[in-house]
Design a protein around this nucleic acid. Structure first.
Lengths: 191, 191
DNA sequence: ATAATTTAAGACAAAATAGGGTTAAATCTT
DNA sequence: AAGATTTAACCCTATTTTGTCTTAAATTAT
């Protein structure tokens, strides 16, 4: 009997499922709330990718040495997954916030002076500009002509966010990050 | 030969996978950016569940009739998945923002007067209070003693958000929603 | 040239949110 | 009492984000 490609594909996965589920004893039902019980915080203004990008950008800006900083070093210092961070930083490279260089002594470096890169630039590159432009309810085209009920209030909020993110540069953040009591990342306890 | 429960479980799924993958022609690889190409907007301050909850609460508050409003009606008027909305509204019921009633003429109703329910109450019930308390980078314990580099800026933003959400009540929003040009939901075009 | 190092790219797994059904329980109508 | 209606609960699928691993390409060092 001939197997379709789909069948082969699925049968190939069977072993994986077998292994994955074998040790799972039909996990007890968890109350089917909309928000179940996430293992890590998930409701946030910025995505994880964006937070990592900001942290890394601040880190690079705060390093004194000229030259490239390896992503490996950044990921270790900030306790971020290396591979995930690599992809995030690729986005910053693609929009011209970072330069990257392969090979030994390679890594990433700021493509401009740190005072010319704003928080807005970094956020826009990774999460996009929606949080600066969209209404609270996410209605397309929410504006003065056909506003949502929260339009005015939210416009006030957005305006604040916009101002803060525009006026804050990587240089400002890097300076603060170099102060003795300031933390840039959530590091595990060291002994 | 005896099959383990895991095997039975997996084999049972085989048919589903077969059906699901059969018509998918090994979908072309989409550039593995961190943000691929979501079909709907996903980076947002509030979760979809929270947005639906707010919309529904405003709708209930804006309906003149006393008595219960059925979730079916709400979901149709606001173009929201009925089952999903049901779960969201259960959360609002559990914290005492709504009352629910089963059976014919059942539905949900505000448990308090609309001017005594703030936007903050609704958001906190569904998405939690993180956006009102957490720092931009989500670092646990970010505060004056050990701030993150963006602490001061973000505190300013949070404060704005907090003020706005506290002072805005369902009554305010419902009044606006009843104005002729105001939209409460993203409705499909009607002919 | 060869080997080592480092980013880029691709494939996939895991975890979270969003969404869709079915059955149970409560309540009204007849 | 029987049937209809509506929320509650349960179970599963789909989509998106996050995380891991492998291979390719670029570059330096030997």
């Amino acid at each position: 009997m001939q197997q379709s490609n789909a069948t082969k594909y699925v049968v190939g996965k069977l072993k994986n499922y077998e292994r994955n589920f074998a040790h799972k004893k039909k996990s007890p039902y968890i109350a089917d709330k909309v928000l179940r019980n996430p293992k890590s915080k998930t409701v946030m203004v910025l995505s994880k990718a964006c937070i990592y990008g900001i942290q890394a950008a601040i880190y690079v800006a705060s390093v004194k040495d000229v030259g490239y900083v390896s992503i490996q070093e950044i990921s270790e210092k900030l306790n971020i997954s290396f591979h995930f961070l690599t992809k995030v930083l690729q986005q910053l490279t693609q929009v011209g916030i970072l330069n990257s260089y392969r090979g030994p002594k390679g890594g990433v470096a700021l493509a401009k002076q740190s005072e010319h890169i704003s928080l807005y630039n970094v956020i826009a590159a990774i999460d996009g500009t929606d949080i600066f432009t969209e209404c609270m309810l996410g209605l397309p085209g929410c504006g003065i002509a056909t506003p949502c009920p929260a339009h005015d209030s939210w416009a006030e909020m957005r305006s604040k966010l916009f101002t803060i993110c525009h006026r804050t540069t990587l240089r400002d953040l890097a300076e603060k990050a170099n102060q003795y009591n300031v933390r840039l990342a959530n590091l595990p306890l060291t002994i």
